[in-house]
Simulated scan of single mutants.
Amino acid sequence: MTKAATLQQALTRFLDPTGLDRQRQRVCTHLLACRTEAMGGMVLQCSDCAHVQPRYFGCRDRHCPQCQGRAMEQWAERQQANILPVRYYHVVFTLPHSLNGWIQLHPEVLHRLLFQSAWHTLRTFGRDPKRLDGELGMIAVLHTWGQNLSQHVHLHCLVPGGALGDDGRWRGAHSNYLFPVRALSRHFRGHMVSALRQAASAGDLHRVTRPGDVDAQLNTLMATEWVVYSKDCLEHTHAVVRYLARYTRQIAISNARILAVDDHQVTLRYKDYRDHDRHKQLILGGEEFVRRFLLHVLPKGLMRVRHYGFLANRCRRQRLVQIRQALAVVEQAPNVDTAASGTEPTYTCPHCKQPTLRMIGTLTPQRPLYDQPPNHKEQRYRG
């Protein structure tokens, strides 16, 4: 069994589709079909040694550990091109685990309010005349799991250390934590709890049906210390971008972390952050592994990556020019994407080890899927 097949084998052995919602059924169908005859593909032949082999299409589902590698690299490259010559901060907003039940009941609502509350918190501190007195920028990536596949919902934010003032001047941050984390935590808690209360009053949390549960939960949340992490990454900004890129297109677990699958259980490798980041092994029953994995399937259409402030899509180009001018930095021309040049792709031949495999035919999908991935014609060249 290859590493690329470990998750598929676990799902094949232990997945029970009974009771799954349509989105989870669709995701599991895509993952099981990925890079198999079910997806169809193309026939490749080596122009040197005449070796012939099939190459099956990927499912391109954003939950798939085998797909989206190139998309992640391109995302990271775009963010690297926009890096400013300033101190950056890595800020993490974490939701208390007591909200996990509500997140499963209303994922769209809870995730939307998490993004809004995190940005409202940073924006409020950035606009404070006693602090930076200007507009911040933020890239936020949703992350829903811990190393052991448990539900651990938090938001990773990459924040340039400074604000663009209304007068066009750049006001840089100089601390090693951007803003006091205790103050950030309490503001974040207050805004999130208030937003949840408003959502409950508007009927957006209608699946929470036990009498008095909303008030009891929100009162408990206000009495709990919430966790916000903030640290500068002056020397590691590009590494943080690459770290965030890994979570823009995939979820929960990579095939490399699945060490073994047998008839009853799955063995994982994980990092124990509470024990000096030591690597350990975790053995889960097959059904429990599938249950934990499916906890992290996002609702269709939910955006996991969002940009705010002067990094928002509608104004980013103009704002970055203003900031670089304020910093007296010459604007660099964007790199040309040579991948879109229209040249025929080649692949490395496993027999003679030369990049001489070329497409000579196509393979028809063997069975229908819930829905076909987008841009299927273009997909054959992405690998």
Rank of each mutant, 00 (worst) to 15 (best):
residue 345 P to A: 06
residue 352 C to S: 07
residue 254 S to V: 05
residue 143 H to T: 01
residue 40 G to V: 02
residue 289 F to G: 03
residue 312 A to G: 13
residue 49 C to M: 05
residue 290 V to L: 02
residue 176 N to T: 15
residue 14 F to V: 11
residue 284 L to Q: 03
residue 134 G to Q: 07
residue 177 Y to H: 12
residue 195 A to R: 07
residue 316 R to E: 08
residue 141 V to C: 07
residue 351 H to D: 10
residue 133 D to P: 00
residue 374 P to R: 08
residue 128 D to Q: 05
residue 171 R to W: 12
residue 225 E to K: 12
residue 102 W to V: 14
residue 179 F to P: 00
residue 310 F to E: 00
residue 63 H to V: 13
residue 319 R to E: 06
residue 64 C to R: 00
residue 192 M to K: 02
residue 330 V to N: 11
residue 378 E to K: 10
residue 224 T to I: 08
residue 158 L to R: 04
residue 82 N to R: 13
residue 282 L to A: 02
residue 377 K to L: 11
residue 28 C to G: 04
residue 381 Y to E: 06
residue 319 R to S: 09
residue 2 T to H: 10
residue 86 V to W: 03
residue 238 H to D: 14
residue 205 L to R: 00
residue 202 A to C: 05
residue 307 H to R: 11
residue 162 G to T: 08
residue 183 A to C: 07
residue 214 V to F: 05
residue 369 L to Y: 10
residue 108 E to G: 04
residue 237 T to A: 02
residue 79 Q to F: 08
residue 120 H to L: 14
residue 189 R to F: 12
residue 122 L to R: 00
residue 279 H to N: 05
residue 159 V to R: 02
residue 147 Q to I: 04
residue 257 R to H: 05
residue 157 C to N: 10
residue 75 W to M: 07
residue 248 T to A: 00
residue 354 Q to M: 13
residue 383 G to W: 15
residue 8 Q to N: 05
residue 54 P to A: 03
residue 316 R to H: 12
residue 257 R to W: 00
residue 294 L to S: 06
residue 375 N to E: 13
residue 236 H to G: 03
residue 238 H to K: 14
residue 171 R to K: 14
residue 42 M to H: 09
residue 58 G to D: 01
residue 302 L to H: 02
residue 336 V to Y: 07
residue 320 L to Q: 01
residue 194 S to N: 13
residue 99 L to H: 04
residue 36 T to A: 05
residue 28 C to H: 01
residue 34 C to E: 02
residue 193 V to F: 07
residue 180 P to I: 07
residue 35 R to A: 11
residue 232 D to K: 03
residue 337 D to P: 01
residue 382 R to N: 12
residue 123 R to P: 00
residue 88 Y to E: 03
residue 256 A to D: 09
residue 58 G to N: 02
residue 360 I to Y: 02
residue 101 G to W: 08
residue 344 E to Q: 06
residue 117 S to V: 04
residue 222 M to N: 07
residue 250 Q to A: 11
residue 152 H to V: 09
residue 111 H to V: 12
residue 38 A to H: 12
residue 153 V to M: 06
residue 357 L to F: 04
residue 349 C to A: 07
residue 120 H to N: 13
residue 302 L to E: 01
residue 2 T to K: 09
residue 270 Y to T: 05
residue 149 L to N: 05
